[in-house]
């Protein structure tokens, strides 16, 4: 029974990831989808090799996708409003800096996920005899 419910939880997390990808592609822009794909590729190929429950990792993956989607949505809105207020020149600034700002959430979420998954809490250098 527990195994079945665990499977359902896993499936719902995977579904959330797929929905985020579709939403970013249909509702935001291609760049945000590509960023989500890069994040998913790194996450599944590297973080899934670490110790820890699969559902915990799937939850982090789904959460990362939701945050990424929200982040891209906010920036897309900023772009729309910025273009309206400052004119077409804002679009150029947006095109230059969007990828840099976009990776901020990827890197931050990456480090947070690793903090959650690290098995032992070691806060500093330990001198070994």
């Amino acid at each position: 029974m527990q195994l079945v419910s665990s499977r359902w939880v896993s499936i719902s997390f995977v579904e959330a990831v797929v929905l985020c990808l579709l939403a970013s592609f249909r509702l935001i822009n291609l760049e945000s989808t590509v960023t989500l794909l890069i994040f998913n590729l790194l996450f599944t190929s590297l973080i899934f090799q670490l110790k820890g429950a699969v559902n915990k990792k799937l939850f982090l993956l789904a959460l990362g996708n939701v945050i990424g989607l929200f982040w891209s949505y906010v920036f897309c809105s900023v772009s729309a409003v910025g273009t309206l207020v400052f004119g077409e020149g804002f679009n150029v600034v947006y095109a230059i800096f969007f990828p840099f700002l976009n990776f901020t959430w990827v890197v931050s979420f990456w480090s947070l996920s690793l903090t959650v998954l690290t098995p032992q809490a070691n806060t500093g250098t330990e001198v070994k005899a």
């Binding site: 901020t104 931050s108 480090s111 947070l112 070691n122 806060t123």
Partner: peptide, 11 residues
């Protein structure tokens, strides 16, 4: 290396 807090500095 079993490090946690230093991860926060990666950004």
């Amino acid at each position: 290396d079993g490090r946690t807090r230093i991860q926060f500095l990666i950004p």
